[in-house]
């Protein structure tokens, strides 16, 4: 086992899949010579050449549209959107074309593309370099959405995403790129899309989360165990669409208490869907109201450090919410 950062694990996944399958190529803004603004694709152009590592103009609609067209005959494009905030010009291509192609063609052809996008705040990115955009796509059948929290999951899920015959949005938390390290096996492995992972077993309450918040929740849960003897079960959704109902419901039926946490704002977020699933299918197992912990519904993450801190979820918030829920 080697210890890797999230970013290194993602790069390794790209390299392995490009070596394995000539149909795989990457395209995006500055992914070639510059190696991407976060350096995820650094070195790829040296190994695979400019035909497989394509620098594009600053035009996200084009990047995604080209990927869709190339994928029709079975190519496996991996498109990078430089910041998730820049994905909005490509909404039409993603929602109107990528998501619908298999359906409109009655399965005659599909759209095996991956769209990678760094998302999330806490890096003083302000309005257009901090957003969480996953909920905007969660409403769209035909798409898959993956948001890994650890290097191990990121590598195994990105490899699965590249091999998946349908379009996958792959969201990488930019604060986690270099700050989160973890063990990654040397040998080849692929993880299933659509399966959540119980990152920490527990009996007193269920915490359902994804992305960078997984780490906040795990730290809060460890402190809570040490300080109060409360054992929280932390579920990392990993895949947001399709969502793993079974893992959610199994845990909820066991603990009867649920905290849902994400960095995206609250209204209409992934947490709303998770809460609705639980309400529909496990209401009578609940011993306390469902709690959602999410940033306030403000327009954009503010630049100022104190304002940004007021937006970003913290370990302390999670600790308090988990404790209060266990005591309810």
């Amino acid at each position: 086992m080697a210890t890797k950062t999230l970013l290194e694990a993602i790069r390794d996944a790209l390299i392995e899949e490009m070596r394995r399958d000539e149909r795989v190529f990457v395209l995006g803004e500055d992914v070639g010579r510059r190696g991407g603004v976060f350096r995820v694709t650094q070195g790829l152009i040296d190994e695979f050449g400019p035909a497989r590592v394509l620098d594009t103009p600053l035009a996200e609609s084009l990047i995604v549209g080209v990927a869709i067209g190339a994928a029709a005959y079975g190519m496996r494009p991996v498109a990078e959107i430089q910041f998730a905030d820049f994905i909005h010009p490509a909404m039409d291509q993603i929602i109107n074309e990528a998501a619908k192609i298999r359906y409109r063609s009655n399965g005659a052809w599909g759209c095996p593309i991956v769209i990678r996008a760094p998302y999330g705040g806490g890096v003083h990115g302000a309005l257009y370099h901090s957003q969480s955009v996953e909920a905007l796509f969660h409403h769209v059948p035909g798409l898959k959405i993956v948001a890994p929290a650890t290097p191990y999951d990121a590598k195994g899920l990105l490899k699965a995403a590249i091999r998946d015959p349908d379009p996958v949005l792959f969201f990488e938390h930019k604060k986690a790129y270099r700050s989160i390290r973890g063990e990654v096996p040397e040998e080849e492995y692929v993880l299933p899309i659509g399966k959540a992972d119980v990152k920490r077993p527990g009996e007193h309450l269920t915490v359902i989360t994804y992305g960078y918040n997984v780490h906040l929740c795990l730290e809060a849960a460890a402190r809570l165990s040490r300080d109060e003897g409360i054992e929280a079960e932390v579920i990392d959704l990993r895949t947001l669409l399709p969502i793993d109902k079974e893992t959610i419901l199994t845990s909820v039926r066991k603990t009867g208490r649920v905290l849902i946490s994400h960095e995206d704002t609250k209204t209409g977020g992934i947490g709303a869907e998770v809460a609705a699933i639980i309400a529909e299918e496990a209401l009578f197992y609940l011993d306390a109201p469902i709690v959602r912990l999410a940033p306030p519904d403000v327009h954009a993450m503010p630049f100022n450090g104190r304002l940004e801190a007021a937006f970003m979820p913290t370990v302390e918030q999670h600790y308090a919410a988990m404790r209060d829920l266990a005591r309810f």
Binding site: S61, L62, V64, G65, V66, A67, I68, G69, A70, A71, A72, Y73, M75, P77, Q93, E97
Partner: peptide, 9 residues
Amino acid sequence: PLAVGMALA
């Protein structure tokens, strides 16, 4: 853009 992507392929 889809046509361009296919031409790229």
